[in-house]
Design a protein around this nucleic acid. Structure first.
Lengths: 246, 246
DNA sequence: TCTTCCGGTTGACATGGGTCAACGGTACAA
DNA sequence: TTGTACCGTTGACCCATGTCAACCGGAAGA
């Protein structure tokens, strides 16, 4: 095991019931009784340094992960070197669901900054969710939400033009920052233009140009990774009123 | 309820245990004991005529559906009329998983031909999967597989060129026909060029041109919706060796 | 059988985004 | 603090795919 990975097993007796990420994470909507039963679920925490993988494509699947601090990207690599970023994940979000189907992970999960995750052994999750209805239901919702999210990305990639994609991306980030108690108008992106581009099916130059145009039009103020949304309504309009509609 | 929809509740006592779609469907990998308990799961069957919806975006989510005969597409419609097909589903595949997260369906499911589905009431599924481990696990696998599949589509849409996308699509269809005991080399597509295009993020003309080029190059024989794959290896090579790699 | 319409094909042309290249700023490491 | 590598920006040009239009053929209905 890499030096960049550390495991803490001690002091997790109250992993979930005392966590302030509750409403964003797996335990959402569970009552106190159920919540305390959840505490036994989290086996350990794991710290991942920036740029380091939490898991890689092909790794044996044994656990899913809830992000406690930091953020990640997931991606798929093709033999010829092409990369497709399939998602960016923030605190409270769940990583590793791709591994259930074949018991091998099918993508890479890489930390975008120094991060920490809760390790949720999958066997234990299945076992516990057989008796804790709230957990079973919530887990299904998390998986379903991932499917719906992916369909949204397919919409982006298949039907929208470059600027629409970036606008949708910014609004999505804004909304997720808001849900975490941060400003909806001003935030710091943890990923590079190239990673954004890969996610949106664009080249980094196109992403950069779209940012510049948004800035020129007074929609956002961009300074490297620091983003300030000046006209959220304008961004929304960009997506809804397709220039080429007939 | 539309005249195009009919419900049969009788004679379903052995819905799953006597179904020949077993290995492709939800009961995959379950033993006989579990299998017989599954029979109580399928509430009814429903026939859907070609072009009719099984459910629509916004409909209340109450059940998932296993396709017994026929095939479907799922799509999302944007206000401005743009459509994104998010998937094509064949016998044994599960529809409706998108609805779990919000208890409303988030896409439309439309029959591509006269079809029949098994209605699996979701509440019953959750209840039964609390005692039948095999069902719980298999259901999770089905959801996870959907996530992995979606990531593959994101790869298509985000990183591949038109001909690569179509080649990947054809190989995927071929493989799924094979799994259902049909020829891997010769099959009948149920969807139009426009639907294929929407799924692959291309215009129908581009799909048509790519088909023509494949035909010219001796990779496939195309006659309208009837496809014969002449050089599967050639199609695979098309995907792997990206022309623009450096 | 004839008609109509829809889906598919093909051509000519337009354009959004990719490619290649140069350069500048920022952040991290020494 | 200085050096350096990475990241981001911008410009010029190009090409894959979209757009628009014409036409064809098969399927379904009169």
């Amino acid at each position: 095991m890499k030096a960049t990975v550390s495991i803490t097993a001690a002091g997790l007796k109250k992993a979930c019931s005392q966590c302030n990420l509750l409403e964003l994470c797996l335990p959402f909507g569970m009552d106190d009784t159920d919540l305390h039963r959840l505490d036994e679920l989290v086996g350990a925490r794991r710290k991942i340094k920036r740029q380091q993988p939490l898991y890689r494509s092909g790794d044996l699947f044994e656990a899913i992960y809830a992000i406690r601090t930091g953020s990640f990207k997931t991606d798929i690599l093709l033999e010829d070197g092409r990369e497709q970023v399939t998602g960016f994940q923030m605190t409270g979000e769940i990583l590793g669901l791709d591994g259930i189907s074949t018991e091998l992970h099918s993508c890479n999960a890489v930390a975008l900054e120094d991060s920490e995750v809760c390790v949720i052994p999958y066997a234990k999750l299945e076992e516990l969710s057989r008796t804790v209805e709230g957990l079973q239901h919530q887990f299904h919702k998390v998986m379903s939400r991932e499917i719906v999210r992916d369909h949204g990305v397919m919409m982006l990639l298949g039907s929208m033009r470059a600027e629409e994609r970036l606008a949708a991306f910014l609004l999505n980030m804004s909304q997720r920052f808001t849900a975490r108690g941060f400003s909806s108008a001003e935030f710091h992106l943890r990923m590079t233009r190239e990673e954004i581009g890969s996610y949106l099916g664009l080249k980094l130059e196109t992403v950069s140009r779209a940012f510049s145009r948004f800035q020129m039009e007074g929609l956002v103020a961009v300074q490297q990774k620091h983003i300030r949304i000046l006209d959220g309504a304008g961004l929304k309009k960009l997506i809804q009123h397709h220039a080429n509609m007939r």
